[in-house]
Write a protein that binds this DNA or RNA. Sequence first.
DNA 1: ACTGCCCAGGTTTTT
DNA 2: CCTGGGCAGT
Length: 776
Amino acid sequence: MTTDPFDLGAIPEETTARSTSAAAISAMRAPYLEGLNAEQREAVEALDGPVLVLAGAGTGKTRVLTTRLAHLLATRRAYPSQILAVTFTNKAAREMKERIGRLIGGVVEGMQWLGTFHAIGAKMLRRHAELAGLRSDFTILDADDQVRLMKQIIQAANIDEKRWPARQLATYIDGWKNRGLTPGKVPAGEAQSFANGKGAELYQAYQLRLKVLNAVDFGDLLLETLRIFQEHPEVLVEYQDRFKYMLVDEYQDTNVAQYLWLRLLAQKNRNICCVGDDDQSIYGWRGAEVDNILRFEKDFPGAKVVRLERNYRSTPHILGAASGLIAANEARLGKTLWTEENEGEKVRISSYWDGEEEARNIAEEVESLQRKGHMLHEMAILVRASFQMREFEDRFINLGIPYRVVGGPRFYERAEIRDANAYLRLVAQPDDNLAFERIVNKPKRGLGEVALQTIHQLANARGVSLMRAAREIITTEELKPAPRRALAGFVEMVERWRALVPGMPHTELAEIILDESGYTEMWQNDKSAEAPGKLENLKELVRSMEQFDDLQGYLEHISLVMEIESQDTGDKVNLMTLHSAKGLEFDTVFLPGWEEGLFPHQRSLDQSGVAGLEEERRLAYVGITRARKLSYISFAANRRIHALWQSAIPSRFIDEIPKEHVEVAESAMGASSFQNYAPSRFSQDFASGSDYSSPGWKRAQTMTRTTSKVRPPNLEVSAELVATSDPAAASYRRGERVFHQKFGYGEVTAIDGNKLTVDFDKAGRKKVIDSFLERV
DNA sequence: ACTGCCCAGGTTTTT
DNA sequence: CCTGGGCAGT
């Protein structure tokens, strides 16, 4: 091989042509190809050009994906470092890594570009941070930081936060970012919808704040990278050349920003393989565009489409029920799942008087199955909304059935973990203002509103971080003695810990920090019921840090990974939402709460109409297809939602399941009158083949055409913001008369850089900072 | 600066 | 019903 593999300028065709025969040869004796069915094999071997693999539920998607990667590597089409493989979740990325490792050994190590969209975006953004007006050590904010920041922005703009909650602004901004919209690109109508037209303005202000804080949120990891690609063609070309092959998992879940990102990267080599299932797109409300997968062939003319329809998971009845249901959707590419399994049991449908009866019966069925030898961990209860879980938990606790809640509150999102992380962040990165704010007074140190306000004031005036401002302020008398001492103690502590970083294992340091800061003690003294659990979580946190080399590595990890490995492996019934069940499978699946209003959820219908209904239906499809052998659907005539009782009729989805795959268990259910739904306007649009007129497509088009003309990121603006006060301009002379907010009028008697000694008429001699003074 | 009270709002949540 | 957040009182 004469071509330098790392010469990114190498002509792709050359490499391709040369390795074709090698590919054919190794394919013949490649052990990893054995056992694939014809379609799977086709999907694995179609290496060149755009490929869309439509992988139905349980058709061996992950296997195809990993085998394809192995095949690329084994046939030497590309070096590990030349393959871009993106997933949505860390779990999927991890799993892919493991499985490739098992197939072809250590090469995985070289796959630096296998990861989640966000992890890869972060990696790229760190390499080119300056092009986005950031330093490469920028911090990644999580949802909580994001909202806190927006709250500040809203307050600063003098907008009533009661009427316009930060949470809602966050939803808007996330939505815009998902669609690849920078502040200037927000459609006027939508910008109008928040705070009487201040939406885009606040978005802009938020972005400026982020730049000043040297921070990004999740959306920026993609959006900023995308913008760099669009505004700096040389950077884009570098990556286009580097990535000889691209692989995308769960393509149906990509949003517009991700779609544009992928399309730009794939433009040159066109070796992109997207794997997904339009019928399992359930994250539309998070910005996923089913359209992306539906129009793949239009985007990549000449694309090869492979359908994986042979299902290895479920029985024919379960597949029949699921297929019949999903057939009611108009906006789909269409697949017919089949299996060679034995017929098996029909889907059992039961009706109950109320939610409690439903829970009781399901719990009894769980016990009965267990007596017949079924394992608890092979059973799952999948609910639409998490409030439904309570009834089941109550029941299980009552009967002593071990259960596990999957999903739920994330480890890193818990307050105590976020507090602990804020301490660690502040030690690693003293300029992290959000971390500083979070913990200066936690545990209570007597640093309240006033103290914080003063620190803020100086920080803003100087354009420095809160930590720096605090360090300066304690050498003066700006604060009253008590808070001043408290702040001095705090600053000193953080600096002491910081000095320990190089010489001490980071887990040990973490323990010291939690201990010396008084944080652990705070919870020990807390008498509430949650306190012991919180302390336990803190211990778990320190334990989980062991798997990282150092503090830096740990912090980078947690900013991108919101989960923690749970080693909860006992034989327990699984309880989770339908959303978190995607990608999982169980022998037995219980699907309670199939009532109009709950499932399909009323809000989904209200908000998104037919598109919402179709997404709910896909959710139902995901639910049914989780089951290998047994599937139970049920609904209750009465349900207590919040305080009041509501009666409900069976979900229309129940009627949509073909009768031949169903067995009605309890009585009173044939009465459902939900039979026919007129085809919607939306569906007709789609059926008429006007794919290009879909909103997503139009949006995408305007995006690509116009963003290149966008003015560069707000570098100048943020620079201005940082330098609002020019210290030189404020230099005072001895004897000068000055005014201080707190101390009143006085005369300068001594000058030490920024620090002045002033004889105040009323307050006496004080040491203060120049930025708190005004000339008289 | 902390504690208690009142009021609103409650679908899903990969990073 | 139940939780979380904002505000008023000591």
